Amino acid sequence: MPTGVHLRDVREQLFGAAERVLLRDGPSGLTSRAVTTEAGCAKGVLHRHFTDFDGFLAEFVLDRVDRMDPQAAALREAAGTGTVVGNLTDALVAVFSSVAVAIVPLVTFRDELRARLRQAWPAGVPVLTEACVMVAGYLTAERDLGRIAADAEVDTLAATLIGTGHLLHADRTGTAPERAALHRVVTTVLAGVLRGERPGRPRVD
């Protein structure tokens, strides 16, 4: 029986391999054989540690969602500093530069994976839902500080920002949009609720 430490090592090895395959080959290329080949281990290793491949994928997706927690904490701590538009632009760049964009089509591609995820994630698409919660939490903090309007609908604003950001990044084979494009989205969406802030020109890095 493997120890807990060994199990964590195997999980991280397989999850890392799954992420690389997903980013390189897309959802259709993400098979159990592709994952174990990428990880450099026998196919049976995956099935010794997970009930089946969809069970493995469900844990992989939830692990990547959990990895958004530090980003969410950093965004909350940024409330009251810098500019609202700048902080949110940085957050969207980070979300959509990660494996998040590739996970969305994976979830929609596999019916059984969605069924497994429903056991732990009853509504919405993991990653996008978590990103909306992250942005809404930040906007709530800024609303409490008076940097956005007191009547701002933070949940609607968050969903609009994440949905638009996802549309800009939806083609994984295309060129990723520049930061300036996300800056314009944030500026436009928040135009009616910002208080005492001039968005200014976006950074080009």
Rank of each mutant, 00 (worst) to 15 (best):
D111K: 12
W121R: 15
D52V: 01
V5P: 05
G86C: 06
T175S: 04
L194F: 05
G174Y: 07
A42P: 02
V95Q: 04
M134S: 15
D63E: 10
A115F: 08
L139I: 09
P199Y: 00
G4M: 14
V189W: 01
T156F: 03
T51H: 14
L106A: 12
G137V: 14
A131R: 05
A42F: 02
A191L: 07
D66K: 14
G200S: 00
V95F: 05
G86L: 04
A42W: 06
V10I: 13
V193L: 00
A79Y: 09
F15L: 05
R33F: 13
V65W: 01
A39I: 00
V204S: 12
G174Q: 11
V104M: 02
T129Y: 06
T164P: 06
A78Y: 04
L22N: 02
V10E: 08
R24M: 01
R76Y: 14
V61I: 11
R172W: 09
C41L: 05
A102L: 04
F96I: 06
L161K: 01
R147L: 09
A18W: 00
G163A: 09
F50E: 11
L161W: 01
E59T: 03
P177S: 03
A91M: 02
N87M: 06
D144T: 15
I162E: 00
T36I: 05
L7T: 13
D171Q: 08
A72C: 07
R110E: 14
G16M: 03
L23V: 00
L117P: 10
E112S: 13
G165R: 03
R179Y: 13
H169F: 11
T187Q: 04
T129R: 11
P202I: 08
G55S: 13
T164D: 14
A94E: 14
L157F: 07
M68D: 14
T108M: 12
C132L: 01
I148M: 04
D69R: 15
S28A: 15
T188Q: 04
A136G: 09
